[in-house]
Amino acid sequence: MKEIIFAGFGGQGVLTGGLIIAYTASNLGLETVWLPSYGPTMRGGKANCTVKFGEKPGEAIGSPSMEEADILIAMNEPSLDYLEFCKKDCAVFVNANAVPESHVYPEGVDVTRIDVVELANEVGNVKGQNLVMLGAVIKKMGLFSEKEAEEAMCKMFEEKGKGAFNSANVAAMRKGFEAVS
């Protein structure tokens, strides 16, 4: 089972980012649970989601809540508080644009810094910062193949009536793949 926390400010697309992981896993026939923070959150407030999926078909998911995450994706500095719910040797992906390089992490944590703002700007998709980050996570952690992730993302946005932005979104995700290749 893989457990991933995707956290940031409301408006940074962390819920959507987690949802793409859930869609990709589900498309592959893996058991998946996606749990958002809910209630009176707002743009600029704290937001996060937890995604858990079985690594082979039939592997069921118990609790949907944050327990011992394998991966923490932190789009801002306060999100690093969720390390409390991570394994000691977890992988942390950090938005280099929002978290100072001087930030001190617990021992054993594997940190990858991604400048999502610059990379998203390079493909002219400033709203695709979450997708850049997602691409980096998927590639570096080997969660899914590039094709599986791209296809699931495009299918999901099509179903939501946002298929028109698919090529820009794929470009953002590919920037993330390249960033860790």
Binding site: S26, E31, T32, L35, P36, Y38, P64
Partner: peptide, 10 residues
């Protein structure tokens, strides 16, 4: 319950 209502599963 809140979490069962808010979470997503296939």
């Amino acid at each position: 319950e809140a979490v069962l209502g808010q979470m997503m599963e296939a």
